[in-house]
Design a binder for these strands. Sequence first.
DNA 1: CATGAATGAGAGTTCATTCAT
DNA 2: GATGAATGAACTCTCATTCAT
Lengths: 230, 230, 230, 230
Amino acid sequence: MPISRSDVSKGAPRQPAKARSRPTAASRARPRTNRESREDSVERIYHSALRLFVQQGYRSTSIDEIAAGAGLTKGGVYFYISKKEHLMAQMLDDIAARYIDAVIARIQAEEMTAQERLVAFMHSQVSFALEWPEEVLLLVMASVEFSKSGDMLTKKIDEIYGRMRSFIVQTIEEGMAKKVFKTKLHPSAAASFYVATHDGMMLEWYRRAAQTDGPELVRVFREAFLRVLS
Amino acid sequence: MPISRSDVSKGAPRQPAKARSRPTAASRARPRTNRESREDSVERIYHSALRLFVQQGYRSTSIDEIAAGAGLTKGGVYFYISKKEHLMAQMLDDIAARYIDAVIARIQAEEMTAQERLVAFMHSQVSFALEWPEEVLLLVMASVEFSKSGDMLTKKIDEIYGRMRSFIVQTIEEGMAKKVFKTKLHPSAAASFYVATHDGMMLEWYRRAAQTDGPELVRVFREAFLRVLS
Amino acid sequence: MPISRSDVSKGAPRQPAKARSRPTAASRARPRTNRESREDSVERIYHSALRLFVQQGYRSTSIDEIAAGAGLTKGGVYFYISKKEHLMAQMLDDIAARYIDAVIARIQAEEMTAQERLVAFMHSQVSFALEWPEEVLLLVMASVEFSKSGDMLTKKIDEIYGRMRSFIVQTIEEGMAKKVFKTKLHPSAAASFYVATHDGMMLEWYRRAAQTDGPELVRVFREAFLRVLS
Amino acid sequence: MPISRSDVSKGAPRQPAKARSRPTAASRARPRTNRESREDSVERIYHSALRLFVQQGYRSTSIDEIAAGAGLTKGGVYFYISKKEHLMAQMLDDIAARYIDAVIARIQAEEMTAQERLVAFMHSQVSFALEWPEEVLLLVMASVEFSKSGDMLTKKIDEIYGRMRSFIVQTIEEGMAKKVFKTKLHPSAAASFYVATHDGMMLEWYRRAAQTDGPELVRVFREAFLRVLS
DNA sequence: CATGAATGAGAGTTCATTCAT
DNA sequence: GATGAATGAACTCTCATTCAT
């Protein structure tokens, strides 16, 4: 009974979730049907896990904490997930689908120059990150936590980042073929630069949320990247 | 009896250290004196911990693993460290001293323009990172693992990064006062850009060590940063 | 989820519990409901801990031993207690409530002379000790084990003994005011004598259970104490 | 090379011993000969252990703490003792010899009535306890810590207490034979009363050192005991 | 005579996971 | 659909003890 919420969370309001230490039946609006109840719980688990994973890291977050944040007990969480690892994998897939694959698909569907494609990609990612910063951070932080750990999740992270890199490399190659980009930089190096800056930016933004002007950082990022390609 | 090896590791050869699971007497050249023995063990613990922390993260690395990597037993490691947390703190201090404070001190000691200072700083850090990539990675990864965790280490990391940021901000302000930099970017935003790119670069390099051309990435980084300031 | 069994153990039969080293499913009557299961386990933990703490002392008793005695595993015990220290604190509170506070409350509720009050107090404590010797011993032994150790439990023990002393001091003062007691002994010295003799008696009885005639010791104790006051 | 200091400690000044955390050679007056040095260290270990055992209990005191208190290191302590247990056994023997056996021997050597003998015994013990309270406390506390623990020390404690009991029982029997004591109390019960009150008194005194008037407690103790026998 | 390094056995505690109800 | 009880493995840390120097 795997979690999947690709579309569920769209407009989901982030509940403040003040460490509701003991879940009571009354603490959540009781949904009528099983279907609703299920979706509700899945939603709560997802958000609880997302918040906690980003804040404390995957390994430092216990199922108990996730459960408490979701207004359930440990056993209740295990009704929906089979393993902690699977929950994380599910979440990463979910985010990748929305943050990477959907964006690429939309862009590929339209007629554009390579440069336009790249800009569109950046803009889409930036918009997404502004709306759902935690999901993007989960990706970035997971890529750090699992980079070489030999964990089952290492592979998944690699694949996800691989898809992002491939798109950029392809687009740059296309642009170079059409002489849009004049850089002598190897496309894969350029992709690395994109990824590196992307990840660094997200981390910096999170670490210094209060002191950092996100949009300005993004503007600098975009210009730096495009100038690198010219 | 805190570990301290600020200068010890200078030319220390990284031993390959293929998970020597059980320490045997034969596995290390038996040093004659106590003094040597202590330094040797400290060195081994430091390197074992460094490698493992970078690879698996602090929290996922057990003292047992560190001990095995150092050719000691758990108890032996605890003879040198009082707490796992202190080992990490010690290591971070050590690295910060060499990677940040020493570099800044050296640069401040010389007569240079703001621009030259910044370039010198970047170059010094880059050289260091090329020679001791794991130490720099430890800093970056720790900054992710402990960013908001409320851990004792959070404060330490914040201070270290704070020192790096301060230097950059000061230097840029100086440069702006003397009209060397014309950017309208706020100095602290520029510092954030530096830090973000620095961290992202290190992570990307580590994740894709095999496929990435480190020096090229660095060149791009430098140019991007300097162009941002002009 | 703190243990609390103030009233649970009333008529609970002490099972002999010969170091049932490995818990087997068969080793306990499997209770039907959760409620029963919880109460049963709590009871088993309490008794196992009581026996072991009295026999070996708090610090020499491991959670593993308590668990084995309760037919559980270490983890199972930790489902009920949060810390070993809390288990002990809980037990001491529990015993103090029954052995001291309840007894005082009952006596204070009735009309009696100071002398009668004192005798009633002694009798109540003696009856209790004859029925639940281990609980009283736990108090006495803990008062030795933690007397000056700076442990969190030191404070608790002090408070408990303080309540006993206060009652005696007050009652003697009352009796002296009404000329019932003619002793020139300071009330607090008399209370000290009571406590000292009480503790010594319990220890002696325990150490020499086989060779000592408990009731006779008690008789001597009572007479000695009352004569001291006259 | 067992410790033995039966006579050494007579007038030894208790050093304040403010947790001298790191022993330095300079921290103690360097004795000239080996012989002196040895006696000095033995003395220091003995006193350090005594203080700590009484304060924290045997099991809660580590060799490291004893060593620090003696101005030595762990290894240094182990030069004099073979096992922690042996140190304790040695100390108990030592104390018993002075506090019990020597006292009995002296009294047996003189011509006295049974009553005089008992009084003399009490007085001797009381004097000793006033001068060396810690040694007596060690005996009492050890009797609690090891009463039924199955430890090697249990036997030793039992023997020591046995010698004290035997003397009292014998003396009372003698007195009863000569009609000096008229009590119907069984001699061994009277001995138990003595031991119980003795132990309780010592503990109470220690626990409430500040608030308790030792000598008064002792006077009450003596009178209570003698009245019990009449 | 004493130090300092090291071991190994265990202690307390946490936590992913399972399962009967 | 969810709870609460329980397990077992792993983890951090402590400590009596040994031994080369």
